[in-house]
Nucleic acid binder design. Structure first.
Lengths: 160, 160
DNA sequence: AATTTTAAGGTCAATGTTAGTCAAGATGTA
DNA sequence: TACATCTTGACTAACATTGACCTTAAAATT
């Protein structure tokens, strides 16, 4: 028994997979909620928590009569857009938890595999540990170093 | 009478061994703790001390309803068994050039691939750069840090 | 054309259910 | 003894679900 949010997430992903060309899907919030037996705002929660930019999605919507929710799965095919995307989602500072989340998301998107994730986690952990135990850096400064190192690694992969 | 942490560690490893294909296991923290008659946070201690990326494990978790802890084992072989060999090859100190040579050799032996080598090079170079520009470390000290980080990464991959 | 009605979607706060953190104390070990 | 490792529990943070109330856009009416 998995949670509803994940079930709805999978359903939307199936719809996207079925779109051979564009990977865009349009939904009616109320209908989707009804078919899963939940309140409409649950759909917003699914979108907010699962179809985020760092997971590679764009969400557009319109209210009123003939309203809709449109979900786009972005591909970032050319190196330029991948670099831009990486800079955008990693940002200037990353906590250890945020780092892990991002790496998991990247693995789920197929941008890195498990071994690569392992290497990156070990390197970042060591850098963080050195910063804490050897150089007495503040959590913020360490977060900046982590974000910086992660960006460099991801950028090098994006161009490879 | 061995300690609880080790007992729980063995239990999780048995669960991983039972997974024939992918060594992945999902747990409920509270249930596991209950079955061993300990507080839930003991499970976190087991994970933090025994299932680290340095030992070849990746841990993901989710809180809230239907929460879980998922453990992935990437290297079956106990990294400790090959530790001396890695220590011997890498040594206590590594110049940037020696690093590159070593990584190329590893790639040629098929122990890592081009992407993995790239990740490692970027991480080591960044660590070296930080040591030089931010902390004014001597070349020797930086070489020690590089060697240390490389050894940790190689151990995590349980390379030959 | 302006106003009202209707039909969408959005926001937010309350609640319940997990897991994580941290530090103090207990136990084991050199 | 001194140091490291283990154990515990109080407190914190994150995630999921729900519903009351808000905003927007199109259609209908005046």
């Amino acid at each position: 028994m998995t949670n509803l949010t994940t079930v709805i997430e999978r359903h939307i992903n199936e719809l996207l997979d079925a779109e051979s060309s564009e990977a865009v899907v349009s939904l009616r919030r109320k209908e989707l909620a009804k078919s899963f037996g939940c309140v409409p705002s649950q759909i917003n929660y699914v979108l907010r928590s699962r179809f985020t930019p760092e997971k590679g999605y764009l969400v557009q919507s319109q209210r009123g009569g003939h309203g809709y929710i449109r979900i786009v799965r972005l591909s970032y095919e050319n190196p330029e857009s991948r670099l831009e995307h990486i800079n955008e989602i990693v940002g200037e500072f990353l906590s250890e938890q945020e780092c892990k989340k991002l790496l998991i998301a990247f693995q789920e998107r197929g941008l890195i595999n498990a071994r690569e994730r392992l290497i990156i986690e070990v390197a970042l952990r060591r850098a963080d540990d050195l910063g804490r135990t050897e150089f007495d850096l503040s959590p913020y400064k360490r977060g900046v170093i982590q974000a910086d190192m992660l960006k460099r690694i991801l950028r090098s992969l994006a161009l490879a």
